[in-house]
């Protein structure tokens, strides 16, 4: 099927992916490719790795939908790219170090743990549930700031531009949020 670009909306994009329409996948690549590349690049720090990572994630998208029915295509494919990129940093790169913004975000978020290098018995899912509860207590703007910094590994300056805030305001909001998150993780027994 041929679809002009301006006929694609979120709903038709979802339906196209679910129907295994190649034009829908091409539209995802065209519309979000640069954003996804940026996300991968910030984690990996390498243009070649980032490009491979995005291609692999688009293939994952093709294979996963269906049976998956993502509500938000951008969110779904962003998560795929992030997972691929983080796996690559951890297990395929000898130095296990990624891009500057990724390392910075990782270090900041680790402040919420009393022993980042420790091995607690808790599962990632339990931490995720705690994190979701924490995010629900935040304003939408703060949730966006948190997500852009720690999910998408964007620099504080770019987070500020996306949210209409000064870089300094982004930094202070993140400091406050990390303090709160640390307290929430402690209350839930995730850090001691």
């Amino acid at each position: 099927m041929d679809h002009p670009h301006d006929q694609w909306n979120e709903e038709s994009l979802r339906k196209g992916l679910y129907a295994h329409d190649e034009a829908a996948l091409e539209e995802v690549s065209r519309r979000y490719g640069r954003l996804l590349y940026g996300l991968a690049y910030r984690i990996l720090g390498s243009a070649l790795d980032a490009e491979e990572c995005v291609n692999e994630a688009l293939l994952d998208l093709w294979n996963a939908v269906p049976p998956d029915r993502p509500k938000g295509v951008l969110a779904y494919v962003s998560a795929l790219v992030r997972r691929r990129a983080v796996d690559r940093v951890r297990y395929k790169t000898a130095s296990r170090r990624g891009g500057e913004d990724y390392e910075g975000s990782l270090e900041e978020l680790s402040e919420c743990l009393s022993d980042p290098e420790g091995y607690s018995s808790l599962e990632t899912v339990a931490i995720r549930d705690c994190l979701q509860r924490f995010l629900r207590t935040l304003s939408e703007e703060d949730r966006t700031v948190f997500t852009l910094r720690y999910f998408a590994c964007m620099s504080n300056e770019d987070v500020g531009k996306a949210c209409g805030l000064r870089e300094s305001a982004v930094v202070m909001r993140l400091v406050r949020m990390r303090k709160k998150l640390k307290a929430v993780l402690e209350d839930d027994g995730i850090t001691v």
């Binding site: 980042p116 997500t147 999910f151």
Partner: peptide
């Protein structure tokens, strides 16, 4: 724990 927290953020 650091890797688990990072992965948990990826599951928002």
């Amino acid at each position: 724990d650091q890797e688990k927290l990072w992965d948990a953020v990826g599951m928002l």
